[in-house]
């Protein structure tokens, strides 16, 4: 019965979306070829690999880290990426004493340009409701436990500002190249729901 209901909802949505696309195409509001390009861009070109590259560079190059923390949009624009970055990106730095975590309680604001499309959990009611009130509880859901003395800053994305967390560089990675460092940087660590493993 549950499976049947689920199937019915999918079919209903497939039909409704197809109907809307047909109407918008027939009226000349959208070009079907453009639709394919839009989702393809977000599924193949933009993603956490961009943020990971930025983090690795900040770990390896103190001057870039200073520029990133001063104006993340400007610093990243200077990297010559083949995708664009919005004007209002802010990087916040984790330290052993301070942990930053990003949320959007009102909708689903997320730094698409550097992390790609948000995962379902980021847009879910449990994450949006609890992170501002019980961040340590949310971190526990992700298997992350911080020392009781670590200060926590929760950033609620209530305007067009977007945040990227600069995670703590793990010990013992001094000899790694920037590519090797970037490979260790997870999406969750750049949202603040994960740490980069040593």
């Amino acid at each position: 019965m549950h499976d049947h209901d689920h199937h019915s909802e999918l079919s209903e949505m497939q039909l409704r979306v197809k109907a809307l696309e047909t109407i918008l195409t027939e009226k000349g509001y959208v070009d079907p070829a453009a639709l394919d390009l839009i989702v393809e861009h977000y599924e193949t070109k933009v993603g956490p690999h961009i943020g990971a590259r930025v983090v690795a560079k900040a770990w390896a190059e103190p001057a870039f880290k200073r520029a990133l923390l001063a104006d993340a949009s400007k610093a990243i624009a200077g990297l010559g990426l083949d995708t664009k970055v919005g004007d209002h990106l802010i990087a916040v730095e984790n330290t052993p004493q301070l942990h930053n975590i990003i949320v959007c309680t009102l909708c689903s604001c997320y730094p698409w340009d550097v992390l790609g499309l948000p995962p379902t959990w980021y847009k879910s009611a449990p994450y949006r409701s609890r992170t501002v009130k019980d961040p340590r509880g949310v971190l526990a859901d992700f298997g992350v436990t911080l020392p009781a003395t670590t200060q926590i800053r929760v950033w609620d994305s209530t305007a067009e500002t977007r945040y990227l967390v600069l995670p703590v560089r793990p010990a013992g990675t001094e000899r790694l190249s920037q590519d090797e460092l970037a490979a260790r940087v997870t999406r969750d660590s750049m949202v603040g729901t994960g740490l980069v493993a040593a």
Partner: peptide
């Protein structure tokens, strides 16, 4: 939704 309770754990 900020601060609401009872939505459960993050999946």
């Amino acid at each position: 939704m900020g601060g609401m309770d009872a939505f459960g754990k993050v999946v």
